[in-house]
Design a protein around this nucleic acid. Structure first.
Length: 286
DNA sequence: CACCAGGCAAGCC
DNA sequence: GGCTTGCATGGT
């Protein structure tokens, strides 16, 4: 893998284990959308990025090498060698199949606050509506972002995910406008708890896993599953293995005699491989 | 084909 | 058991 600047773009060449489609459609993120050309446009912090893939090359439009080094390399987890993970999984019953199918997914290093709110919204919900609610949240409470010359999206506005401070004065009525249903009070509680202790999320980095879970689960609407998703996708805690209905069906059908011993820091990736595999092939767990 | 009705969805309280 | 909303499904 090597990086070059070509005109205004950054090209990641000969990258292995990186499939844009699988990464963005594996259910870990909600703010990346495919454009007409098969590329993706999305927002991370205050950056709007358009990128696309040609075989083993990923092209990041209108990006500098400094931005790549400071932001995107980390966001796409490009310092990790996923082939080491894959090699350790191939040959395992079921997990090997999931790995072969899902190979190319990378765990995104997302913003902790955005991840927390997003997965509160995700509970008992479906992906198109989750994305809709988050988009409304960003348009209502985020701020409009500068977009430099993103082709065929000139009439489209992009908004940041609102920071805690952007939401600190919201009422339940404000959130109800997002039409997120019974989850409105959960969002209000998350804003209340995090804004009253603005370092709350920072402390979590230094906690052991169970302590971090308990801390997040103090927030209404955050149970074990939402906490684990927040820790995995938002805090990079790769040892988390969120168990949703799909993973549970898999465990109940294929792992009644127990789950194999897997390196703890590979568990988050294994979960993502299995999730994408069974969501894409529901018959496997029926 | 529309269109409609009722089921159901990345959990949690 | 109940919860908001709207997608996806299957029936007409």
């Amino acid at each position: 893998m090597f990086i070059t600047q070509k005109d205004n773009d950054i090209v990641i060449s000969d990258v292995t284990n990186f499939n844009l489609y699988k990464t963005f459609e594996s259910g870990q993120c909600f703010r990346w959308n495919m454009d007409a050309g098969g590329g993706y446009i999305g927002v991370f912090r205050d950056k709007v990025l358009k990128l696309y893939q040609e075989d083993n090359n990923i092209i990041l439009k209108d990006t500098t090498e400094v931005e790549y080094e400071n932001i995107w390399k980390h966001y796409f987890d490009l310092d990790r060698d996923y082939s080491v993970v894959d090699n350790s999984l191939m040959g395992l019953p079921f997990i090997g199949d999931a790995c072969a199918y899902s190979k190319g997914i990378r765990i995104l290093k997302q913003d902790p606050w955005e991840t927390l709110i997003s997965f509160i919204i995700s509970q008992n919900n479906n992906i198109p509506r989750i994305k809709l609610i988050i988009e409304r949240l960003c348009r209502r409470f985020g701020h409009k972002l500068n977009v430099k010359d993103i082709t065929d999206s000139n009439d489209q506005d992009y908004y940041s995910f609102p920071a805690v401070g952007d939401m600190k004065d919201i009422s339940i009525e404000d959130i109800a406008e997002l039409k997120c249903g019974f989850r409105d009070k959960y969002i209000v509680d998350a804003v209340s708890k995090v804004s009253s202790d603005i370092c709350m999320l920072d402390y979590i980095y230094d906690m052991d896993l169970e302590e971090a879970r308990v801390k997040l689960m103090e927030i209404k609407g955050v149970g074990r599953k939402v906490a684990d998703c927040t820790l995995l996708y938002g805090f990079g805690r790769m040892e988390c293995f969120p168990i949703d209905v799909w993973i549970k069906r898999t465990l109940d059908k294929y792992f009644l005699d127990g789950f194999p011993n897997i390196r703890p820091d590979f568990l988050g990736i294994v979960q993502q491989y299995i999730f994408y595999y069974v969501r894409s092939n529901p018959n496997v767990v029926k």
